[in-house]
Amino acid sequence: MHIDLDAVAANWAALDQLSGPNTQTAAVIKADGYGLGAGRVARRLAENGVRRFFVAVAEEGIAVREALGPGPAICVFSGHMDGDTELLDQLAMTPMLNSIEQLTRHLEALPGHRFGVQLDTGMNRLGMEPAEWAAVSDLVLQANPDLIMSHLACADEPDHPQNAEQLAAFRRMTDGLNVRRSLSATGGILLGKDYHFDLTRPGVGLYGGEPFVNATPVIRLSLPVVQTRDLEPGETVGYSATFVADKPTRIATVSGGYADGLLRSQSGKGQLFAGDIACPIAGRVSMDLISVDVTHLNEVPDYLDIVCPAQGVDDVAGHAGTIGYEILTSLGARYDRTYVGGKA
């Protein structure tokens, strides 16, 4: 797996430019930097001037703080969970409080510690609902929150009516408050300035994923060819014998499978590439191996690419019936990750 950290930085810079001059652009590096290494990604983005990072749970902040040192803010989407107090305190992380229960826990356990608040504007996943917020907003504001945020459910569908509904709800709950506000991740940035507020927090767009279709590709994933074999018509390949050769066929078996995040649902649909030449998957994707039809190649290379300039991560996801997020965050620990760009 070749990871271009300069491409991550370029994608952040492009989204920062779209966010406008009066809006701070943070970076979401949860799930180990979407599978690419949170520490390495965080350090490279900090070189670009990023001063606020978001993780999903407090434990993810350990690697980020170790990589960044003191100074940059690390915000925790899941808030102040039971058992998080010591970690939040030691690593100076900012929990985004999601409920009255979390608010109570935080103010009692860590009085004076920086915190933010997450509001539910219609996604019905995390955050205080309007009635809850109305009941505690005066108390929260007295405690000087660092940020108030919400999250859009349908931002990757620009024409979806829920985008405008959530924007209106967020304004009703926060207009007139002297607190920084954040509503938009990658998709929200692309919806335009009405959605940007004081801070945006791009995630998947940093790593080359949709809906940021103009993103610079970040990864190239090359799978080594373990063995090749020639089949006669009528011979089969793989589990359940779902591929049957209808002519003399050359098959390359590559090292990689669903244990590495290359989903079984690509079976019979996906493809790998030799340069810009597509080579279809033959039969079932198994745990550690994928068979590929390379009959049409003059020479079988040592590696075949599954993520490359000819096929981005969202193309792979399309063959698997999923989204680029799942492919990126499923890429396993067995890959040899090689980084370019940024400081060591």
Rank of each mutant, 00 (worst) to 15 (best):
I3L: 10
D4M: 11
A7Q: 03
A10D: 10
N11Q: 07
A14M: 09
Q17S: 14
S19E: 04
N22G: 13
N22C: 08
N22E: 14
A27T: 02
V28E: 08
V28C: 07
I29K: 02
I29S: 02
R40V: 05
R40H: 08
R43Y: 00
E47L: 11
F53R: 04
F53M: 09
A58H: 08
E60D: 14
I62K: 08
I62C: 00
V64D: 01
E66W: 00
E66N: 12
A67V: 13
G69P: 10
F77R: 02
G79Y: 00
M81W: 01
G83I: 09
D84E: 10
L87E: 03
L88R: 03
L88P: 03
A92V: 10
N98R: 14
S99T: 13
H106Q: 08
A109N: 12
A109Q: 12
P111E: 10
G112I: 07
H113A: 14
R114N: 02
F115S: 01
D120V: 03
T121D: 09
G122N: 11
N124H: 14
G127S: 11
P130W: 06
A131Q: 13
A134P: 04
A134I: 06
A135R: 14
P145R: 03
M149K: 06
H151E: 12
H151S: 11
A153R: 02
D156N: 12
P158M: 10
N163P: 04
E165V: 07
Q166L: 05
L167W: 04
T174A: 04
T174K: 02
T174C: 07
V179Y: 05
V179W: 05
S184D: 04
I189R: 03
L191I: 12
L191D: 06
D194H: 12
F197W: 10
D198Y: 06
T200Y: 04
P202H: 13
V204D: 02
Y207I: 11
G209E: 02
V213R: 15
N214C: 04
T216E: 14
V218E: 06
R220F: 00
P224Q: 11
V225E: 07
V226G: 00
R229V: 11
P233T: 09
A241R: 14
F243L: 09
D246T: 13
T253R: 06
V254Y: 04
G256K: 00
G256P: 01
Y258D: 01
G261V: 01
L263Q: 06
L263A: 08
R264P: 00
Q266T: 08
L272I: 09
F273M: 08
A274E: 00
G275Y: 07
D276C: 05
I277H: 10
R284D: 15
V285S: 07
S286N: 07
I290V: 15
I290Y: 04
L297N: 08
P301S: 07
P301R: 05
C308T: 13
C308Y: 08
C308D: 09
P309T: 07
Q311W: 09
G312N: 15
D314I: 15
V316A: 07
A317I: 13
G318W: 13
G318M: 14
H319S: 15
G321Y: 10
G321W: 10
E326Y: 13
L328R: 11
S330Q: 12
L331G: 02
T338K: 13
T338R: 15
Y339P: 07
G342P: 12
A344E: 15
A344C: 13
